[in-house]
Amino acid sequence: MNLLAWNCQGLGVALTVRNLKEECFRKKPHLVFLMETKQKASYVRKIKRRCGFNEEWIVNLIGRSGGLALWWSDAITVNILFSSANVIHTSVISDVLSTPSYISFIYGPTDDADRMLCWQEVRRISNAIRKPWLCLGDFNDILSQTEKWGGQPRAWRRIRNFKCFVSDCELEDLGFHGPSFTWCNNRDSPDTVYEHLDRALGNLQLRELFPTLQVFNVDPAKSSNHHLLFIQC
């Protein structure tokens, strides 16, 4: 099973749509998770069809920002168990593919208070999980100072809160191949900042079911300042 996740920062840009379509046809993911679509559902559906998908779950944008989209192929069945502006929690089954029992798609809020509320939502989800569980997306947080380069150091309190969230949910970072940083503010030196915001987390049952799972950070040709995550289970 293959998954693709990307904070695309708006599907209204032709280069973004072209890059997304190319990655979908090149990597053939069974699930695609998009953050910050910044488009109405009707437009997102049009792009979904161009990328070769039939099934969907869409979280509408708020004002001119936000918006989530989850697309999946006919090879799997996805049940939406919980959905909000920042989290889509699903169960996944397939007759032809080995899949995690649960997958949570997460877009961490940039506001500190909202992000803590989001982590509480995911903590509540974790209480009911006893099977393989994969969490992925743009968490808008880092686990250590080494996951940031440039700018002011991240507040230790914020790093501690994120580490506690990961630990409380009994999750572990699944590592990655490719660039160490998945986001850049795209400013000229000396104001350039890089951070590792996009990642995949999994519980023990997931790591036992998929011991060779791989996460790749893919540079999407500068149409977004976030790298794309590609996960091979």
Score class of each variant (00 low, 15 high):
residue 3 L to T: 03
residue 6 W to Y: 08
residue 7 N to P: 08
residue 9 Q to G: 05
residue 9 Q to S: 07
residue 10 G to H: 00
residue 13 V to I: 10
residue 15 L to C: 15
residue 15 L to E: 12
residue 16 T to A: 11
residue 19 N to F: 08
residue 19 N to W: 07
residue 19 N to E: 11
residue 21 K to G: 09
residue 21 K to A: 09
residue 22 E to F: 13
residue 23 E to D: 11
residue 24 C to V: 06
residue 26 R to I: 07
residue 29 P to Q: 04
residue 30 H to N: 10
residue 36 E to K: 02
residue 36 E to N: 02
residue 39 Q to T: 02
residue 41 A to Q: 13
residue 49 R to K: 10
residue 50 R to H: 12
residue 52 G to K: 03
residue 52 G to F: 00
residue 53 F to S: 06
residue 57 W to N: 14
residue 60 N to C: 08
residue 60 N to S: 11
residue 61 L to I: 09
residue 61 L to K: 10
residue 61 L to A: 15
residue 62 I to F: 11
residue 64 R to Q: 09
residue 64 R to L: 15
residue 65 S to A: 15
residue 70 L to D: 04
residue 70 L to I: 06
residue 72 W to T: 06
residue 73 S to L: 01
residue 79 N to L: 10
residue 81 L to W: 07
residue 87 V to S: 03
residue 87 V to G: 01
residue 88 I to L: 01
residue 90 T to V: 03
residue 92 V to G: 07
residue 93 I to F: 12
residue 94 S to W: 00
residue 95 D to T: 15
residue 95 D to Y: 12
residue 95 D to E: 13
residue 96 V to W: 14
residue 100 P to G: 03
residue 102 Y to L: 07
residue 102 Y to G: 00
residue 104 S to C: 08
residue 105 F to Y: 09
residue 112 D to E: 12
residue 114 D to T: 13
residue 118 C to E: 06
residue 122 V to W: 03
residue 123 R to I: 12
residue 126 S to F: 03
residue 127 N to V: 11
residue 127 N to E: 09
residue 127 N to Q: 11
residue 128 A to P: 04
residue 128 A to D: 14
residue 131 K to E: 11
residue 132 P to W: 02
residue 133 W to P: 05
residue 134 L to G: 01
residue 135 C to K: 05
residue 137 G to Y: 04
residue 138 D to G: 07
residue 138 D to R: 02
residue 139 F to K: 04
residue 140 N to C: 06
residue 141 D to V: 15
residue 145 Q to N: 10
residue 145 Q to M: 12
residue 146 T to W: 10
residue 146 T to Y: 10
residue 146 T to A: 14
residue 148 K to H: 01
residue 156 W to Y: 13
residue 157 R to P: 09
residue 158 R to N: 14
residue 163 K to R: 09
residue 167 S to C: 15
residue 169 C to M: 07
residue 170 E to S: 12
residue 170 E to D: 11
residue 172 E to K: 08
residue 175 G to T: 01
residue 175 G to R: 00
residue 178 G to P: 15
residue 181 F to W: 05
residue 184 C to W: 11
residue 185 N to C: 04
residue 186 N to H: 12
residue 186 N to R: 13
residue 189 S to C: 15
residue 193 V to R: 06
residue 194 Y to A: 08
residue 195 E to D: 12
residue 198 D to F: 00
residue 201 L to Y: 05
residue 202 G to W: 00
residue 203 N to D: 06
residue 203 N to K: 08
residue 208 E to Y: 10
residue 208 E to L: 14
residue 210 F to C: 00
residue 211 P to R: 02
residue 211 P to M: 01
residue 212 T to R: 08
residue 213 L to G: 13
residue 216 F to E: 10
residue 225 N to D: 10
residue 226 H to G: 02
residue 228 L to N: 02
residue 231 I to S: 01
residue 233 C to A: 12
